[in-house]
Nucleic acid binder design. Structure first.
Lengths: 221, 221
DNA sequence: CGACATACCTAACAACCGTTATTTTCAAAC
DNA sequence: GTTTGAAAATAACGGTTGTTAGGTATGTCG
């Protein structure tokens, strides 16, 4: 039939996901094309039928890794509706971001793990998209601050960077058996949120409702 | 005179600090012995008079990098005296940790930057010391929580890991001109501290004294 | 002066890297 | 049954890696 030759077998995707898994665990420079090829039962030269260079492979992994996190996080937050409470918004965004990083899909984790060590010519074109994600979070935090859920003296942009650090660094210590992802997210939300209100209530924001125990929340999962 | 031959010239230290600077900026695998040698005006083979392997070099950098941060942070905190307010303790520890990472000394930054990408046989022996530092911070946070300065529902150990993330990740975004280190530390302290008190006062802890504006504090620097 | 250890250089080794050109396999199309 | 083209294998290229062996200055000490 008139099938376009694109990828019936999905070999290209197989190369990418396998490379992402290796990048995630071993870092950028330590991963060789021979290693990728061997891991999927191929020969080194055959990779060049699907990709034109090693940088070409890593470029697409960075791209997809970033897009998946962004769209997942945005989807989780938008699913809450227009005027959801700040606590719910932060909880949804933070948890989804961490879930993407620690999940089985290696693209997001490979992205944050090797980004700093990748050649500048492949890193530079991605800076624009990264900045958009940064702005997306900054706007959310700014809005939460305006609604009184975040300490008024905190700089929203700095907060977004510190929050990225806390979230992305989970890659360095998270062990599936010992920690629960939702529990981590709950702890982080408690950090970002201002404790039970102090000043006057601002607008439609309901009082943070005393934010019940993290342990009990995590226990039900 | 009866000078011990040790290192009158300091060549060994020169190699280490130069290698640390390269590791900090380029990552582990990207740094070659030829690169280190050329950077200090030496030949590749000569390095082997001072060190027995590349792993030997990176091993010592990891060691020193970690020790410097630990002793600096502990020194800054102990200088505050026995019963200093939690806010001061956290401020001192967080700021010193970040200062070590972002300062001119490349050992601490090289340590946190390449640790995950270093061969297991050089990483494993350092895990004990790293765990001590983790426990040190966890104890501090636990104590602050007992004194009512940290939200009671937060898990102190998880908090220490999230805090490490926020601090260590500054390496990925800090630009000397655009941000001030003390301002970053102030923002982070505001996050960790529970907002102005809500429940009953706990013990000798003075009320957080309304934690004056981060911007004004940063402006005076 | 000669013995000797220190500190460095020179040149090369085997192994591995990304990349390329050429060849083989093999299923669908005519 | 022959042709065709995609997909993979083969084998090699130049270059770089960590590492090593052997040589060369430069002093110090007896």
């Amino acid at each position: 039939m008139a099938r376009i030759h694109n990828d019936e077998t999905g070999t290209r995707e197989q190369i990418l996901s396998c490379a992402a898994r290796l990048f995630r665990t071993e870092g950028y420079a330590a991963v060789t094309l021979r290693g990728i090829a061997k891991a999927i039962g191929m020969t080194t030269g055959s990779l060049y039928y699907h990709f034109s260079s090693k940088e070409d492979i890593v470029r697409e992994i960075l791209d997809q890794g970033h897009k998946r996190v962004f769209s997942e996080v945005r989807g989780a937050i938008e699913a809450l509706g227009e005027n959801a409470p700040c606590e719910a918004i932060l909880k949804a965004g933070i948890q989804k971001h961490i879930e993407c990083l620690l999940g089985e899909d290696s693209f997001p984790s490979a992205n944050t793990r090797i980004f700093a060590h990748v050649p500048v010519e492949v890193r530079a074109p991605t800076l624009g998209e990264r900045h958009k994600y940064e702005l997306y979070w900054t706007d959310i935090l700014k809005s939460c601050q305006k609604r009184g859920a975040i300490h008024p003296d905190i700089n929203p942009h700095t907060l977004s960077l510190l929050l990225f650090g806390a979230m992305n660094w989970t890659l360095e210590w998270y062990k599936p058996g010992r920690h629960g992802i939702e529990s981590i997210a709950d702890n982080l939300v408690l950090l970002v949120l201002r404790g039970p209100k102090v000043g006057a209530r601002q607008d439609g924001e309901r009082t943070p409702s005393k934010v019940r125990s993290v342990r009990s929340v995590a226990a039900k999962a």
